[in-house]
Simulated scan of single mutants.
Amino acid sequence: MKLYSKPLAPNPLRVTMLANKKGLTLDFHNLDADDTRSTEYREINPIGQVPVLELDDGARITESLIICQYLDAVSGPPYLCGDGLEQRTRIAMWERRAEFQLLIPAVEYGHHRHPMFAARITQYPDWAGSIADAPRAFLKLMESRLAETPFLAGPDFSIADITAYYGCRFAAIYGLYPTPAPVIADWLDRVDAA
Rank of each mutant, 00 (worst) to 15 (best):
A119F: 00
I121C: 03
A119E: 13
R113K: 12
T163F: 11
P150T: 07
L146V: 08
D126R: 03
L102D: 09
M116E: 15
R145S: 04
A147C: 05
T122Q: 03
M116P: 00
P178Q: 12
T149F: 01
G110C: 06
P125M: 07
S144R: 14
A171G: 06
R120G: 03
F138Q: 15
T163Q: 00
G167Q: 14
P155C: 08
R136L: 10
D161K: 07
A137E: 15
T122E: 14
L176E: 09
G110F: 04
Y174E: 01
M116L: 12
G110A: 06
G129S: 01
A147N: 12
A172N: 08
L139M: 12
L176Q: 05
R169D: 12
A171K: 01
A132G: 14
I162E: 06
Y166L: 10
D156T: 05
A128E: 03
L146C: 10
D126Q: 14
P105A: 01
Y174H: 13
L141Q: 14
L103I: 02
V107A: 11
P150S: 08
R136M: 04
Y177A: 08
A137N: 15
H114S: 15
R145D: 05
F170N: 07
F170K: 04
A160W: 01
E143N: 01
T163H: 05
G110E: 03
D126K: 00
P135T: 07
L152T: 13
F117V: 11
I121G: 02
S144W: 02
Y166A: 05
E108N: 10
F157Y: 09
Y124G: 00
G110N: 03
R145A: 12
Y177S: 00
T163D: 09
R120A: 13
H114V: 09
Y109L: 06
V107H: 03
A171L: 02
L102H: 01
K140D: 13
L141E: 15
E143M: 02
P115F: 04
A119V: 13
E108T: 14
A171F: 01
P135I: 07
I104E: 06
R145Y: 00
H114Y: 01
T149H: 13
E108I: 15
P155R: 13
T163M: 01
D133I: 02
R169Y: 00
A172K: 12
R145F: 01
S144H: 13
G110L: 04
L139K: 01
M116W: 12
H114R: 06
I173M: 08
G110P: 04
I173N: 02
A134L: 14
W127A: 11
H112Y: 07
L139Q: 12
A160M: 05
P115E: 03
F138T: 07
T122R: 10
P155T: 13
A171H: 10
M142V: 05
R120H: 07
R120E: 03
P115L: 06
E148L: 03
Y109A: 07
D126C: 01
P178A: 07
P178E: 12
A106L: 09
V107D: 06
I104K: 14
K140T: 13
C168H: 09
L146S: 04
G129T: 08
F138Y: 15
L176T: 06
T163I: 14
